[in-house]
């Protein structure tokens, strides 16, 4: 099974726009782009993503809270999550992996490679 449906949650509009092009035009995914955790929660079940790409630092609900809330949804229970963060401390990376994220993408990211990276992570995840 290849990666097709990706949900991206990011509060910064510009990054959202860049990611959208990178993931749709470049990678060819079906993308749901949300500007907050709340909006993601509202649309997630309907969209049924194969992978969730989450920004960490967001107002109101941050990435971790959003992840926890999303995974509470029955249909999203086993959906893999990838974080995107500007913070690069090793300890923080480990923390995200510990809570169940399958990968971390550092900001700034390379838009031409973003889709490939997500596909790879997804493949690794479903084969293990």
């Amino acid at each position: 099974m290849t990666l097709q449906r990706v949900m991206h949650v990011e509060d910064d509009e510009s990054i959202r726009a860049v990611a959208e092009i990178a993931l749709t035009d470049v990678a060819g995914f079906t993308l749901l782009s949300c500007d907050s955790g709340q909006s993601a929660l509202a649309q997630a079940e309907a969209f049924a993503p194969q992978l969730i790409l989450l920004d960490v630092m967001m107002p109101q609900m941050d990435g971790l809270q959003t992840m926890a809330a999303l995974l509470q949804l029955p249909s999203l229970k086993n959906t893999p999550v990838v974080f995107m963060t500007a913070k690069i401390q090793q300890s923080e990376k480990q923390r995200y992996l510990d809570v169940g994220a399958i990968g971390i993408i550092e900001k700034p990211f390379e838009p031409m490679e973003l889709g490939d990276t997500l596909s790879e992570l997804y493949q690794q995840h479903i084969t293990s």
């Binding site: 510009s14 990054i15 726009a17 500007a86």
Partner: peptide, 10 residues
């Protein structure tokens, strides 16, 4: 980094 991400990305 946030603006840089979109600049570099774009």
């Amino acid at each position: 980094r946030t603006p840089l991400t979109s600049i570099g990305g774009s």
